[in-house]
């Protein structure tokens, strides 16, 4: 092979890479927690919420699911300042990830909720549980358990999608890669290393979510 690898040049930029990993971690950490919370709230609104709440929530979900993430990001970061809403690039990126993941997880969680057998809900009501209690213990928890693998995948997808936040100068892992590449011109080595890091991060995140699933839904709880 004619190409000579030189990873030494990349090694000098280890601090930049580590900072990139930390920021990617921060983005997905905050984004996933708030995003799933938004998803649960919107899933509730679309299934059990008052009639007036359903159209706006549906509109939000459809808007987010049918536009590119990059455009949403630019809209928030470059568009909103015209209305006087100025965000730092981190705030902009996190908000974009939250609203994006929120919309997708709404649909995933809603699918889990709608798969709840009618009899289970009625059984809950017959135990004198309030409507909120029924939703929380009888509907939501089993629903989340059902869709946990799908939700985990979506969170990993959003983590990988956070790469485009480099476009608004968020110094996450892809930004680090582009930065190193523009300084060393060692494109192959840089993206070689960064691809490896992303792969590792994705596998790690998946394992973490799986462990979280075991902890949240102990084996005998449902089925």
């Amino acid at each position: 092979m004619a190409y000579h690898f030189d990873f030494g040049a990349i090694l000098d930029y280890t601090p930049v890479l580590i900072k990139g990993i930390a920021i990617t971690g921060e983005l997905i950490g905050i984004g996933a927690v708030i995003g799933v919370a938004v998803g649960i709230a919107c899933a509730w609104a679309r299934t059990f919420g008052p009639a007036w709440l359903r159209p706006p929530v549906s509109a939000y979900v459809e808007l987010m699911r049918n536009t590119p993430f990059l455009v949403q990001l630019f809209f928030i970061f470059f568009g909103l300042p015209s209305l006087g809403i100025k965000l730092t690039e981190m705030e902009g990126a996190i908000i974009a990830m939250v609203v994006n993941l929120g919309a997708y997880s709404t649909e995933i969680i809603r699918a889990g909720i709608q798969a709840t057998p009618r009899g289970v809900i009625e059984a809950g009501s017959s135990l004198a549980m309030t409507r909120l209690q029924v939703f929380r213990y009888v509907i939501l928890k089993p629903a989340l358990q059902r869709i946990w693998p799908a939700l985990s995948s979506q969170i990993v997808i959003v983590m990988l999608g956070s790469a485009v936040c480099s476009q608004i100068a968020v110094e996450e892992l892809t930004f680090a890669a582009n930065f190193i590449q523009s300084r060393t011109f060692r494109a192959f080595e840089t993206y070689f290393v960064v691809t490896g890091i992303y792969l590792l991060l994705a596998v790690l995140l998946r394992q973490l979510l799986r462990a979280l699933g075991w902890w949240l839904f102990p084996k005998k709880a449902v089925r």
Partner: peptide
């Protein structure tokens, strides 16, 4: 490359992908 060498350490340099990103950042006040 030049500014990274000479800018004071307290200056924050935001690096955008292309000129359009840089222009948008300026016009939107980022």
């Amino acid at each position: 490359l030049e500014l990274s060498k000479i800018a004071p350490p307290t200056a924050t340099i935001k690096r955008y992908e292309d000129n359009n990103g840089t222009i948008s950042a300026f016009l939107s006040g980022q």
